[in-house]
Every structure is written in C-alpha cells, then in structure tokens.
C-alpha cells in the first residue's frame, strides 16, 4: 500500500467509500402519500399537464426550466442556462430547501427536512421517467454503492475463487488469451500494476468511462483478488 500511495500521490485508502446496504432510492408508496403536499401545484403520471407548477413526468434528466410552454421564474431559467439538471442529487437539494438551490424560485414550499421523506418522494417521482431497460442512458433507479458484501468475504485477502468470479465481468471485453485488438490485454499483468491502474480508474484519474464505472464499484479486496487472479492466469 505504501508504494501505491506514493505512485498516486495521495492516500487512496482513506477515500474508500463505506459499505452500506445496496440502496433503492426510497419507498415509492410512502413517497406517493407524501406527494400530496406537492400535488396542489404539480401533476405527475399519465395525462399530467402544467398547472401552477410544471408537470413532473420525465423530471429526471430534465434541465431546470426545461419545459416549453411553462412560465418559469427568471431564477429558474438562469439556473437552467447555468447547467442545472434534475438528477437524484439536485432534486434532493431542491426538495430540502428550494431557495437554497434556486434563490428566487416561485416554488413556495418550505422543504422536506427529513432525508427519508425526500428519498421516498424521489422514489415515487422516478416511476414517471423512462426506464433504463428501454433507454439505457436513462437516470439510475438505485443509488450507487458498494456491492452488499458479507463481511466474512471482505476479510478474505486475494481470494482466487472470488478473483475468478469477478474476472467474468472483465472477460466480456478483455480476452483471456491476451488478444488486444481494440481493447487492451490484462492477462499476466503484474499484480501491483493492476492494483494501481484500477485505483486510478476508481479515482477517475484514468479517463475511460467504462473502466471508471467498473473500477468504481470494486473494493480494495476485490481489486486485490482480481490482480492476483489475472497475474497467474494460464490460458
């Protein structure tokens, strides 16, 4: 680990996210009940139209002030022009305190102070944005997190079986026989180089989006297991 820190120039170990349960956004049915505080002004669902507030179908991924034909406040239009887009994090901030995010928004709502309330409302609203099954780039329906690992598994250092299992995700693209046309070979890569490279993707120091995504959800132990596996792979 000392060498790794030296190579990357900062302490990666401290940045590892904590492991908590795999998360859905929240409880959508509870969110539906809470939405009664919103439905005086906002419609959502089949046939929803703009009323006092804009309709909330396809709100996820919509730029702020992004609906044609709705008279937004100047503040909201400016926020949209500045690049505000409604994702999980921005909707969460807006629902907590609308005026903290968009100073002179016309949305007259004091906010949901309880994070669980916000999560549940967001889970309910998420039902009305396109599914990633149909449009893969559609917004997530769960929160990014480490896989829900048994602590006993996490305690195993460089488990070759685990490395072999995890490697099946790699071999969809990286050929085990070391073929490297279009996609680089990772077979027989020295363990330490492998570990450093994966942490560099995880910290988004290396640029490739597929690898940032794949590495981003690997724990230190999982990276070690993979490195051990590929370093010894004979095929």
């Amino acid at each position: 680990m000392a060498r790794l820190c030296l190579l990357l120039g900062f302490t990666l170990g401290l940045l590892a996210p904590g492991a908590h349960a795999a998360g859905q956004i929240g409880d959508a049915s509870r969110g539906q009940t809470l939405f009664s505080q919103c439905s005086g002004c906002h419609q959502v669902g089949a046939g929803a139209i703009n009323r006092v507030g804009p309709h909330l179908n396809n709100i996820y991924g919509r730029p702020a002030a992004g609906l044609d034909g709705f008279a937004y406040s100047k503040s909201m239009v400016r926020a949209g022009a500045d690049g505000l887009v409604w994702h999980l994090d921005t909707i969460d901030a807006y629902l907590e305190n609308p005026r903290a995010l968009v100073s002179r928004t016309r949305m007259s709502f004091r906010g949901f102070s309880d994070p669980q309330d916000r999560a549940d409302v967001m889970a309910y609203l998420r039902r009305f944005t396109a599914s990633p099954q149909d449009i893969p780039e559609a917004e997530p329906t769960a929160r990014a997190d480490l896989p829900d690992l048994d602590p006993a598994i996490l305690a195993i250092e460089g488990d070759p079986d685990y490395g072999a299992y995890l490697s099946s995700e790699c071999s969809t693209c990286h050929q085990r026989d070391g073929g490297d046309a279009g996609i680089p070979a990772i077979t027989l890569w020295p363990e330490e180089d492998f570990v450093v490279a994966m942490h560099a993707y995880k910290q988004k120091l290396r640029p490739h989006p597929v690898m940032q995504m794949m590495a981003g959800r690997l724990s230190d132990e999982e990276i070690a297991a993979l490195a051990a596996y590929f370093a010894r792979l004979e095929e």
């Binding site: 795999a22 859905q24 990633p132 893969p136 780039e137 559609a138 917004e139 997530p140 329906t141 769960a142 929160r143 990014a144 997190d145 896989p147 829900d148 989006p209 597929v210 940032q212 995504m213 794949m214 981003g216 959800r217």
Partner: peptide, 21 residues
C-alpha cells in the same frame, strides 16, 4: 458511440446504479 451502466440486485429488480453515455 456507446452507452453503459452498472447494476445491482435489489429484492424488487435489477436496478441501475451508475452509467455513462
């Protein structure tokens, strides 16, 4: 061009957690 995502199993469904395009 490409679009991709990672997913995990919840009780209800395989849920998208992260992605890029």
């Amino acid at each position: 061009v490409k679009v991709g995502a990672s997913y995990q199993a919840t009780d209800e469904k395989i849920a998208k957690v992260d992605g890029f395009i």
